[in-house]
Write a protein that binds this DNA or RNA. Structure first.
Lengths: 213, 213
DNA sequence: TAGATTGTTAATCGATTAACAATC
DNA sequence: TAGATTGTTAATCGATTAACAATC
């Protein structure tokens, strides 16, 4: 069981959500089955890669027909752990934090942002996109009382570590880190670093190559 | 020359911005040189990987001392094409788009967002984080007049392709795409897809593994 | 000097891609 | 049936990691 899950490669996991998007499109179009070839076409991938990725779900397709869209979608969600909601708090309700509070797509992905926290008294006890903003002082207490397991961290780099220190021992299991720093956490807490600059680096490098090439 | 640039691997390019962050920290601390070992420590990487990545810049370090921080920083920026500003427009001033308008870090990375565009008349001709929001009708004309080469696309999936079609032939060279769809563009336009769901997929998969393992 | 750190070449590892028999 | 598509096993490709001589 454990081995099964761990054996799915990271690149595959990152592609799986895009397959889910395609499946949603296909449902809207009234389709009930889809081939790896079709999915590949819509995502500009090669069919072999899609087939290999989908094989990680354990779902078997039918030659000449493909996969049951409904069944495949459920299997991908199960593999990603997106079947059940996880409760999350967001820390740092600045520009990026506010944007994430307003993005409804996360709930489809099993992530439910219950509330936000910020040290700025001007926005404390207000609501942003319908989500309450609490002062930092209430963070530990509310995490424990509400048994929140995920933190979305959208703080300026210089404050990130100090706030993360407060999270240790609260039962937090994962941190989705948008602050551009490497966090120092005990190994039982999983950190997923998100770095917009990486994507920009790829784009601008390619543009530079194109110009000079 | 061309080969030199193309030979830098994508994973390396994605890591380079994090090295820049470390260099900035070190400058603040008053350091003038740094070893690959130190950089690795701060980023929880292994020294060999850092050394290999840095070798792509062409900068040579001194045994026992390391690299000149100033020189290394400039070389990384040059490699990433972050030396000169590129002008960009942002299309879709919703929650995420507004957040990106408010993020000042991009200018350090050679990306200058001049203005935003949105189809919602309520926000047209207003300013968001000091950036003017124009109606869509003015998009083509302004791209051409201001010779903008990069588009940041933060539209809902269903409108993305139709807007991208309007960009073709305007001189746009790159699209930084935050809309969760695969864009169909002529091959001279470079698209960099940004997908928040991928990061969330990795985090939740790891959390699921941890629970079951 | 001694030893930490470098750059480079080689080995390992893992992901992608190809080949192909099975089958609806 | 014929052929498109599947799942699996093997080959290729590329990135990471290791080994090591050079050197400040």
């Amino acid at each position: 069981m454990k081995n099964k899950l761990i054996s799915v490669s990271l690149p595959t996991i990152k592609r799986l959500p895009t397959y889910l998007n395609v499946l949603e499109e296909l449902k809207v179009e009234g389709k009930t089955t889809v081939s790896a070839t079709d999915i590949a076409k819509r995502l500009s991938l090669i069919p072999i890669q899609v087939r290999k990725d989908l094989s990680a779900t354990g779902i078997v397709g039918k030659p000449k027909i493909g996969f049951e869209i409904e069944e495949l979608g459920k299997a991908i969600k199960a593999l990603l752990g997106w079947e059940n909601d996880r409760d999350a708090f967001l820390i740092g309700a600045g520009a990026l934090g506010s944007a994430l509070l307003g993005y409804n797509g996360f709930e489809q992905h099993g992530l439910k942002i219950l509330a936000a926290f910020d040290s700025n008294p001007d926005i404390c006890d207000t609501e942003i996109h319908g989500k309450r903003v609490f002062p930092m002082e209430k963070l530990r207490d509310l995490i424990e009382r509400m048994k929140v397991s995920i933190i979305i961290l959208t703080l300026p780099a210089e404050f990130a570590q100090e706030v993360v220190n407060k999270l240790i021992g609260t039962g937090i299991k994962g941190i989705w880190n948008f602050s551009p720093v490497t966090l120092d956490v005990p190994k039982e807490i999983i950190v997923q670093n998100e770095n917009l600059a990486s994507g920009l680096a790829v784009l601008s490098t390619k543009l530079t190559e194109r110009n000079n090439g």
